[in-house]
Every structure is written in structure tokens, then in C-alpha cells.
Amino acid sequence: MDAQTALFQQHRQRLFGLAYRMLGRPADAEDVLHDAWLRWHEQDTSTLDDPEAWLVTVTTRLALDRLRRAKTEREHYSGPWLPEPLEPSEEAPADALERAESLSLSFLLLLERLSPEERAAFLLKEVFDYSHAETAAILGIAEDACRQRVHRAKLRLREGRPRFQVDRAAQQRLLQRFVAAMEHPNLDSLRALFAEDAVHISDGGGVVTAVLRPLHGADRLALLYRQIALNSNGPGTAYELSTLNGAPALLIWSEGRLTSVMWVEAEDEHITAIHAIRHPDKLARIEAVTKSAGSASLH
């Protein structure tokens, strides 16, 4: 490996983490890194005082351009859009430990409240620990403008944050209770899982059956999941507890195919939000990795 390639590889994990948090899709983040590598390969690195700053700047601006296009495309997306999980192998332990919350699927979804420019400024300053001056230089804006973007981002995120943070053990317990209720579905056991104002959000992308708008209320969610259980339960159905993006998740299999990935937000041992990814393209990477690892299902 030549020195230029080695230097890029040295910073690759950080660059991927930034691009993924910007875009919410591993494949898009990889595309950004590929474009950044091409530009890096053409660059005379001997003239650079700070190679890392150059790479972060290029990666951020490429991700910004792609995110602006994606925002336009998502306006025509069929139903809600949810971020795509990383493969377990893509979650570097150090990154997951240092910035676990910013990698969670719930937090990535929260970032969708921000404009692309606010998202970039917030991530650089608050997640990747660049100063306002450094962030402004990366984005090519004045420092005061950078401060305003970060401030607006914090306000927007504060408005959308869950009221309480639930630890991993509580989330896992709720998912286990959810599985038990789905295996022997009745309205009382399902309704007991949900807070009164619980919401269900499902991403099928117009490719598979999914609720096209967020569904609110414990009664409606209990009816929905009872019907899903009655329609889908059988010898070929399996529920598997897993960890995706550093948090507990539930994988649902049918006849050996991954049909849904779910995660929850909760308060006082009740589910306040349940998110389900059903789009086959978003499940393909997780299915392939899980099968290759020979992971055993929960039931």
C-alpha cells in the first residue's frame, strides 16, 4: 500500500461515519467515499498542511450535495422514509462507544428534521468535535453563520427528542414482550405494550405492503399488530433479537427471508414509537450478513 492510500485508509472510518450520519444510507456513504478517494488520488498531498482537514472538507461537501438531491427525491417517496441500518461489521467498536447515540437509527431519523446545511454543521461541531472556526472553514461559511446553524439545529433536535432516554436493557425487554405478544396475539396483551400516544412508522418504499402514514394511538396499533400476527404467524415465521447501530432491534423472518427490521422508543416500560423497515433493498445487506454469520433466531 502506497503512502497516499495508507493515509486515506487511516481516516476512512471517520470519513465513513460522517458520510453515513449525513445521508442515513451505507451505500450512499460508500459512494461519497469513492468520490472522495478519486479526488484524493488526483491531489498532490505533499502540498497539504492538514490532510485530515482536506479529506473531511471534501467528504462533507460531497455528502452535502448528495443529501440535497436526496431531500428532493424523498419528497416523492412512497410513505415514510427511515434510515438504513449498518451491517454489524460496519460498526467499529470505538466509534460505536464514543458516539453511540449519534449512530442510533432513532437519532438518524431525528436528524431528518434538519436542513442539509444545519445537519452538516451540527455533526461536525457536536459529534465530531470540530470547533466553530474549523466547522466554518470546512463548510466555507463565516463563523457567525456556522454558530447560527448549530444553534438552530440544537433547537430543532431538542423539540423532536424523546421525552426520556431508555437504556438498552429496557428496550430489549420490550422487544421480548412484543415477540411474546405477537406469537400469541390478543388485543389486551398487545395494547398493554403501547403508551396511549404511541406511533407506528413503517417504510415499505412503495415496494411492499406498509402503512403509508404514521399510525397513532395504542388501540389502533394493537389492532394493526394483531392483524399482522394473524396473517403472518406460521411455521416459517421467526423473530430474532439483534443489535443494529448500537441499539436493540428485532428482525422478523418469513420462510428464510428477512421481511422487517424494527426498533422502539419507550417510556416507563411502554412503547412510545415503533419503527419498521420493510423495503427489501434496505434489508438486503442485513439479511446477507446475518445469514452468513449463521445467526440463530430467537424462536
Results as ranks from 00 to 15, higher is better:
Ala3Cys: 12
Gln4Ala: 12
Thr5Glu: 14
Gln9Trp: 13
Arg14Ala: 12
Leu18Phe: 03
Ala19Val: 02
Met22Leu: 04
Gly24Asn: 04
Pro26Asp: 06
Ala27Arg: 10
Asp28Met: 12
Ala29Phe: 01
Leu33Lys: 00
Arg39His: 10
His41Ile: 11
Gln43Glu: 15
Leu48Pro: 04
Asp49Phe: 13
Ala53Leu: 12
Val56Gly: 07
Thr60Ser: 09
Thr60Ala: 06
Leu64Lys: 02
Asp65Ser: 15
His76Thr: 14
His76Trp: 14
Tyr77His: 15
Pro80Tyr: 01
Leu86Gly: 03
Glu87Arg: 15
Glu87Leu: 14
Pro88Ser: 07
Ala92Thr: 13
Asp95Ala: 15
Glu98Asn: 15
Ser106Val: 09
Phe107Gly: 01
Leu109Trp: 08
Leu110His: 06
Leu111Lys: 00
Arg113Glu: 14
Leu114Ser: 02
Ser115Trp: 05
Arg119Trp: 02
Ala121Thr: 04
Phe128Val: 05
Thr135Arg: 00
Ala137Pro: 01
Leu139Ala: 03
Gly140Tyr: 05
Ala145Val: 10
Arg156Trp: 08
Leu157Glu: 06
Arg158Leu: 13
Gly160Lys: 00
Gln165Asp: 14
Arg168Met: 12
Arg173Lys: 10
Leu175Thr: 02
Gln176Cys: 07
Gln176Ala: 11
Phe178Trp: 07
Val179Trp: 00
Ala181Cys: 10
Ala181Met: 06
Ala181Thr: 04
Pro185Asp: 06
Leu187Ile: 12
Leu193Tyr: 02
Phe194Ile: 04
Ala195Asp: 15
Ala198Gln: 02
Ser202Pro: 07
Gly205Glu: 06
Pro214Trp: 02
Leu215Trp: 02
Ala218Phe: 01
Leu221Ile: 03
Leu221Ala: 04
Ala222Leu: 03
Leu224Gly: 06
Leu224Cys: 07
Tyr225Met: 06
Ile228Thr: 11
Ile228Trp: 11
Ala229Tyr: 01
Ala229Asn: 05
Leu230Ser: 11
Ser232Asn: 14
Pro235Trp: 04
Gly236Lys: 08
Ala238Asn: 09
Pro248Tyr: 04
Ser254Asp: 13
Glu255Cys: 12
Gly256Arg: 01
Arg257Lys: 14
Leu258Tyr: 05
Leu258Gln: 06
Thr259Val: 15
Met262Lys: 09
Val264Lys: 00
Val264His: 01
Glu267His: 13
His270Pro: 08
His270Met: 10
Ile271Arg: 00
Thr272Asn: 06
Ile274Ala: 04
Arg278Gly: 03
Pro280Ser: 05
Arg285Gly: 11
Ile286Asp: 01
Thr290His: 06
Lys291Val: 06
Gly294Thr: 05
Ser295Thr: 15
Leu298Met: 13
His299Val: 10
